[in-house]
Amino acid sequence: MAIIKTENLTYVYGDGTPFRKVAVDNVDLEIENGEMVGVIGHTGSGKSTLIQHFNGLLKPTSGSVYIDGERLWDDKAKLRPVRFKVGLVFQYPEYQLFEETCYKDIAFGPKNMGLDNAEIDRRIKETARMVGIGADVLDKSPFELSGGQKRRVAIAGVMAMEPQVLILDEPASGLDPKGRDQILGLIREYHQQKKNTVLLVSHSMEDIAKHTTKILVMNKAKLFCYDDTVKVFHRAKELEEMGLAVPQITRVFNRLRSMGIQFDDDVYTTKYAKELLMRLLADK
C-alpha cells in the first residue's frame, strides 16, 4: 500500500487577498513504502509546500492527503500522531536547535511522543551513532559545535522519532563537498538499514542522481512527473527547459549523442559514465 497518497491536492496561499497564489495545483500522487525519492523543482515550484502537507503542517485548500491509509484533517486531534509518522527535516535544521545539550535536543521529539526515558535514551544513542555524533558531543551545547555537527544533531532529532517517512529539505546545503557527501551518505545508510521511505529535496541533480531510485518533479505548482530516476533523466531536455540544472555529465553525454556517438542508456552519474566509456572504447 502507498505510504503517502494525495488526491486532487490543491493549496492556495493568501486566498481572497491580492497576494493569492496557487502553490500546489491538483496533485495526485502515490509513494510506495520503502522508496528513496528525490524531490526536485525550481524555487517556487511548490515542492516545499507539497512536502509540508505530508505531515499535516499545512491544510489542503482542497483535496486530500492520506498517510498510511489514513486521511489527514478528518480529525484534528489525530494530526500529532501523523507528525510522528512523517518526520520533516527543514532546510538549515541547525537553526532550530534550542536545548542546553545535544542529548536534550535530540530528546525533544521522542519526549513529545510520550515515550519513557529508557526508550528515549535508547533512541538517542542509536541515532547519534547513525549520524556519527560521539557520546562526548551529546553532553555539549549544540551552540558550541561546528556547522556540520549541528546539522547532524538536528537531523538526529527527527530520526530519533523513528518516523516511517523521513523528509529532508536540502539537507546538504551550505556544506563543503566532504560534508555534503557525509550527510547524504548517512541518509542513504539510514534508508538501507531502516528500509523506511525517504524523501530527499534537493537542487543538486548530481546528488539526486547518485542517491535516489525515484524522482518527483514539481513544476509551476503541478506535478510534472513521478517516476524511476532513469526515466526522469531520460527527459533531461524538458528538465532543462524548466530551469533545472541536469548533472554536467548528463549534458556532456547528451551532446555526444547529438554529435553522432551511439549508446543506449542515459548517463547521469559519473560511475555509469565510466562504465559506458570503457564499453564504448573497448568495442572500437
Partner: peptide
Amino acid sequence: ITSAQKARGADMETGSIFKRAKALIPILIP
C-alpha cells in the same frame, strides 16, 4: 522555526496558559 518544532511534535495549541508559554521556548531561543 514554528513549523520545524511542530514537525517535532511540539504542541502549542492545547493546554493551560502556562503550558503554552513553556511551549514557546523552543521557538524563542532559536
